[in-house]
């Protein structure tokens, strides 16, 4: 029993870890870039002091909310044509990274918008009163003041993605979560299940603590 568990892990774990890292890296990087930008767009188009743009804001809001309200499993299925078009297949970590990225972008965008909204409008007004331009205010005031909040948003997104990436296993995405389902669940290898879940628990803990530590360090209040 124990020997069998180790044999499976020895054979499969390395590959699963690499697949998870691939999925996580692709979706996390797209979220960091596009999610942050989308969050910024949500923020500046809703704010009187910047460029209030009702149409753009409403469209962005709807897109973000629709993506966030689709259950991830369904989103993966919906993304199959897109996977075919972009990577030529709908199995494997690269294909799974597409719905993961989309979900992560929408999720992070919402959190980033929230982090920006936390910035004291008074500080922005004070910056405006110096005659500063909007890009300068965004760079040196809004980003600086929201930075701890942004770090927390990145952490939460990362943790969420780990959960989603495990689900990607269901449609052949691969990864650690896939290992847990394929062997632990379908083949009753409880040992594999426990160890893979433990690995995920440890990764989430470390990520959360590290994110909290960074955010705390960045807070000057």
């Amino acid at each position: 029993m124990l020997a069998e568990t180790f044999e499976i892990l020895q054979r499969e774990l390395g590959k699963a870890v690499i697949e998870t890292i691939q999925m996580m890296a692709i979706s996390m990087i797209s979220a960091l870039i596009l999610g942050t930008l989308l969050g910024l767009l949500l923020y500046i188009t809703s704010n009187q002091m910047f460029v209030k743009q009702k149409v753009v804001n409403t469209v962005a809001e709807v897109v973000v909310n629709v993506i966030r309200s689709i259950p991830f499993v369904i989103l993966m299925v919906l993304c199959i044509p897109l996977m075919q078009a972009l990577v030529g297949t709908n199995i494997g970590p690269k294909a799974a990274a597409i719905p993961l990225s989309i979900a992560a972008i929408a999720f992070l965008a919402r959190l980033v918008d929230g982090a920006f909204r936390e910035v004291d409008t008074g500080v922005i007004e004070a910056a405006l009163s110096t005659g500063a331009s909007l890009p300068l205010i965004l760079r040196k005031v809004v980003f600086v003041e929201a930075f701890p909040g942004l770090l927390r948003a990145f952490t939460v997104t990362f943790v969420n993605l780990i959960g989603f990436s495990a689900m990607a296993g269901l449609v052949g995405g691969g990864g650690i979560g896939n290992l847990a389902i394929q062997y632990g669940y379908y083949r009753y290898e409880t040992g594999v299940m426990i160890i893979t879940v433990l690995i995920l628990v440890v990764v989430v803990q470390v990520a959360q603590n590290f994110g909290d530590f960074l955010a705390k360090k960045a807070t000057k209040r």
Binding site: A126, V144, E145
Partner: peptide, 10 residues
């Protein structure tokens, strides 16, 4: 301003 409004992270 009444509440100074300095950039707290700077």
């Amino acid at each position: 301003f009444q509440h100074f409004h300095l950039i707290s992270g700077a």
